[in-house]
């Protein structure tokens, strides 16, 4: 034993040795722990702590063994967890336990063997002493006079103005975060899609053109322009797809109460944008009995039998309708682009 550490283990609170800078809290009776009184218990605690550290070492070794030994494609069944990757579980378990045991050991050590007597320290007001404040003020005065900050108002004002303006280049530089194509504006880009007159409509997935008879009454088909893949390859992005995606629904023509344009349907087949007018989630939750379209993100509900009008939820605008017809080969085609922007509202649109 060295005498460096003042011992806190004393069954008698009154005999607590003074520690540097503070003293045990007066008036709090201290109940000694078992490890304070019983050397056997203290020895036991010592063994517990050391075993935890030792076990941690063993688990580190197990981690390495698992990393090397278990094939990453091995799956095992573990009750509660189900079928899981053996390597993933083994690595997580060994690493977790190895690390956890270090913490548990340290805390056990602190709780059982280190002093458990609370001590007191005094606080001091946060404000500085008057002399320090006076010194700061004096230094400020000296700085003010030596620099002539007040004496040369023109320097002061031009400096302030210069400092106020120097971030401008840094902000201006952000302008080309979007390298705007010549003659383009956000408004124009948002207002047109890949659809145009006579463009064939293909089903999403197999990219086959659709005949009216392919869609049963009550059915819904997600669809895209026939040239969508070429556009994607040319533009190297999914922007066109994000605007041109549509859904086709077919209902009994008598049930169509209104449309956004005269006869924009084809034999009861209606084409609507798939992009919600609220914040732009794609929609395909369609209830054929009510003709309601429900957005999965924020539950805006549109009535496709009634011009795609909003009947519930946070969306403010109806779903834009695409006028469709068939070409000479009998495949569904667009009759024009959308007549209003698809997707979320924006400032410049009216």
């Amino acid at each position: 034993m060295t005498d460096i550490t003042p011992s806190g283990h004393s069954s008698d609170h009154g005999n607590q040795p003074e520690r540097l800078g503070y003293s045990p809290v007066a008036d709090i009776p201290h109940k000694p722990r078992v490890t304070d009184i019983d050397p056997k218990a203290a020895k036991r605690a010592e063994r517990q702590v050391a075993s935890m550290f030792l076990l941690s070492i063993i688990f580190v070794i197990l981690f390495v063994v698992a990393f090397v030994g278990i094939d990453k494609s091995t799956a095992i069944y573990i009750p509660v967890l189900g079928v899981v990757g053996a390597l993933q579980v083994a690595l997580g378990f060994t690493m977790g336990v190895a690390i956890l045991l270090i913490g548990a050991g340290a805390i056990q050590w602190a709780k059982k063997l280190m002093p458990d007597v609370e001590v007191v320290q005094q606080r001091h007001d946060m404000n500085s002493e008057p002399e320090a404040a006076a010194e700061a003020a004096a230094n400020y005065q000296r700085g003010k006079e030596e620099s002539g900050f007040v004496r040369y108002p023109i320097i002061r004002r031009t400096l302030i103005a210069a400092l106020a303006l120097f971030p401008i280049p840094l902000i201006v530089l952000l302008r080309d975060l979007w390298i705007t194509p010549p003659g383009e504006s956000p408004e124009e880009e948002l207002s047109r899609t890949a659809w145009h007159e006579g463009l064939r409509i293909v089903a999403d997935g197999n990219f086959q053109p659709i005949r009216p008879e392919d869609i049963p009454v009550g059915g819904l088909v997600s669809a895209l322009p026939i040239d969508i893949m070429e556009i994607q390859e040319e533009e190297h992005n999914l922007n066109a797809r994000g605007k041109a995606a549509i859904i086709l629904v077919r209902m009994d023509p008598d049930q169509i109460r209104s449309q956004q344009g005269d006869n924009w349907d084809y034999q009861g087949i209606l084409a609507y944008s798939k992009i919600c007018t609220h914040v732009g989630c794609p929609i395909a939750l369609y209830e054929q009995r009510t003709h309601h379209l429900l957005c999965p993100c924020h539950q805006s509900t549109f009535d496709l039998a009634d011009s795609g009008d909003v009947i519930f939820g946070p969306a403010a605008r109806r779903m834009p309708q695409l006028p469709i017809g068939v070409d000479e080969e009998g495949f569904l085609v667009a009759r024009s682009d959308f007549t209003e922007p698809v997707g979320p509202s924006f400032w410049e649109r009216s």
Partner: peptide, 15 residues
């Protein structure tokens, strides 16, 4: 010690 507990528990949950 508590750092190792938090770290270890996160590793366990994640595994």
């Amino acid at each position: 010690g508590f750092f190792f507990i938090v770290f270890g528990v996160i590793a366990l949950i994640s595994g």
